[in-house]
Simulated scan of single mutants.
Amino acid sequence: MKRRKLGLEYDGKSIYQHVVEGTPNPGNRGDFLCYVMGPYTPFDVTYAYPADAIDTDDPYIEAELFDPEDHEDMEATLGGVCTELRRDPGIRAFVATDVEIPTAKETTRERLDESGLSPLDQSIEYAIVSDAVVFILDEAGLNAGVGSEVGAILGEFNLRIRNREPPRKPRRRFRIYLSDEFGSASIEEIPSGYGIDVYRYRSEADLLGNLRNFVTNVESLSRYDGLELYEPPEK
């Protein structure tokens, strides 16, 4: 697949090159890219209540994926999922911060001599070049606005069912993962609004098992059924 000709270039290199150079090479299946998205910040009850009103030593929500003793934040949790996918089935799984492209805000703050890309633009570009794109949403994450973010990314690929424009990326390359306790009216409308599969996981092992089946199925569809990677807009 001609990934090098898809999407934008940044700083003289394709986004695909940036991803490959910025992420660990898992080995024989390193050409299969899986972009993993989700909230990076855990929900802390001190966001909602004053400290003197909280009667607990642990301000975090108990959840299947996030363990404050093992993970600094939800970003580290998602990174752990990527590590497992790089081990088995050996694909190049990554989160946005694995790729060394700064945001526009970071270039200003750090006085970098480059333009940067906004977080949404980065997500769209990483999704363009990726074989599989997954959203992992857990009740332990700070999920404010997550429905808008998911909708914006899916909408960029013309995946809203009422959109009359042809899809730019096949729906079968996307999947949304929700923990059993996660609740969001906007996310729960994704299957009917966008036609994207949603899977409820009961445990980390359940999540990883389904993820491995999903990416292996996408790889097979790409190899044997000619599943397109991305259809750029007509010039």
Rank of each mutant, 00 (worst) to 15 (best):
F214H: 09
L8M: 05
G22M: 07
Y40F: 12
E106Q: 10
F135P: 05
I190M: 00
K105N: 09
I91K: 06
G193Y: 00
L211M: 10
P166M: 01
G193W: 00
N25G: 06
G226D: 09
N213Y: 15
S192E: 05
D138V: 02
R212L: 12
S184I: 05
Y16C: 13
V129T: 12
S123T: 08
G209C: 13
P166W: 00
R173C: 07
T216H: 11
E204P: 09
Y224P: 15
Q17R: 12
D11S: 10
V133R: 03
E100F: 09
L120W: 00
L178Y: 04
V45Y: 10
T103G: 04
C82Y: 01
G193A: 05
Y47F: 15
Y49K: 13
E188D: 10
G79V: 01
Y40V: 13
G7D: 07
R164P: 09
I176V: 05
V218G: 11
A132T: 13
S118A: 00
D138H: 02
S192R: 02
Y60A: 14
T46D: 12
A51I: 14
S179F: 01
I101H: 01
S14A: 13
K105S: 09
A104G: 07
E84C: 14
D73V: 07
P166H: 02
K105T: 09
E181W: 07
F182I: 09
G7A: 09
R92C: 05
L6Q: 13
A51L: 11
Y194G: 00
L178H: 06
Q17Y: 11
K2G: 15
R87A: 11
C82N: 03
V215K: 12
C82L: 02
S203T: 06
E181S: 13
P170H: 02
A104E: 09
E181P: 10
G226N: 06
